[in-house]
Amino acid sequence: MEMQGIWAFIHVMFLVYWLGADLGVFYVAYQIIKPEHSPEARATLLKVLGFIDGFPRAVSIFMLPVGIQLADGLGLSPVSGGMLWLPWIAALIWFAIAYSANARRTTPRGKQLAKLDLAIRAALVLGLGVFSIATFVSGGPFGANWLALKVLCFALILICGIGIRLTFIPFGPAFGRLMAEGSTPEVEATLKRAVDRVVPFVLALWFLLGVAALIGISQPDF
């Protein structure tokens, strides 16, 4: 029970630094695309955004092993006992890949790592999606339908994340041009378009996080 409480606490803290931190990211992003701010100010804002965004990036990855720990505590996880270190190792490797991909995003190596990160996310969407639907249909591998529904939410959240990544691609080069050549109508339009297109994915992601939280709190029997 004691350990379960600690994992629940960490689980909630991860939600804090995911959903709560996202608010700052979102607000600052909207300020960055305002042409009335100086390029220097916007570069500073991008630094602020990059720092805050590091938190959701990290905790979203480690949410998975923490969730498995909690599920195991409830006797609902297919991964248990001596196997529990496996998701942690996998998450650490994934985090290392995602972190270096982001840190070196302008280099060819960084682009390669970003592709690998994307492949991991796609594989997880597929795997987690199949496992959760299998649970609805045949009662396994997860021990309860509400848990399978949370896992499905997580898979959908990963899809939103992939959507954000793909639609945001033009932002980086456009921002580089803003810094090099100053503000032009095309650059401003590209920046604004990138942020505008990300919005539906971000809102869907937040909504799904709320739904996942609600399922976790109520753990409905169905």
Binding site: Y17, G20, G24, F55
Partner: peptide
């Protein structure tokens, strides 16, 4: 979430 998470920014 929005108290502690918002404080980060």
């Amino acid at each position: 979430v929005y108290w502690l998470g918002g404080d980060l920014g």
